[in-house]
Amino acid sequence: MRKSTFAALALMGSVALVGAAVTPAMAATTDTTIATVAVTGGVLTMVAPETAALTAIVSSSAPQTASAELTGVQVIDDRASIAIWTATATLSAFVPTNGSTTVIPLTTATYVPDAAVVTVSPTTVVTPSSVTDLTDPETVQVSAGGTSSNTATWGAKVEVTVPALALADIYTATLTHSVS
């Protein structure tokens, strides 16, 4: 009798283990065709670089390169689920402040990330990937699967090629980091 009680408890325990990770959604939406439950865990965050400075250049008869060293780009993954994420970078078109007609190409703009320093869950593997065209979002860091929260911090070098005989001006662009 005791054994069968124990076995019954073991059965209940198995069920509890399988269903432990989720709780019913208290504020479940109505008018939905698919029943849902609430997800626990934290958020995924992209933190922009601490520093970024493009070097000034002097117009020349040959193409030149302006570069920027980024530090402190950070992904914080507190979702405590499958810790897979992809971080990307992209650059918007450079806009001249004073109406210059020089076009600074993004197809030759590069982003070379350092290896990320991973904390919180140092066993999570994060792999850097260099980009040679920043026109569209391109992958710069990818995490491998895990089950723990992790924080990855990296620096990167961004380089922009300024065409020969570029008109003097101050050009501005937007650097976007994404994570999903």
């Binding site: 933190v47 922009a48 670089p49 601490e50 520093t51 970024a52 400075a53 493009l54 070097t55 000034a56 250049i57 002097v58 117009s59 302006a66 920027a68 402190g72 950070q74 650059l91 450079f94 210059s100 020089t102 600074i104 961004v158 922009v160 300024v162 570029a166 008109l167 003097a168 001006d169 101050i170 050009y171 501005t172 662009a173 937007t174 650097l175």
Partner: peptide, 30 residues
């Protein structure tokens, strides 16, 4: 500390002298 929002400024001067006169220097506004 972290920074949210960086605008890339790329300064191109027609000569080194102009760059010095105008105070143009490459940089980011953060």
């Amino acid at each position: 500390m972290a920074v949210i929002g960086v605008i890339f400024l790329l300064s191109v001067a027609s000569s080194a002298a102009q760059a010095q006169e105008s105070g143009i220097s490459g940089g980011a506004v953060a």
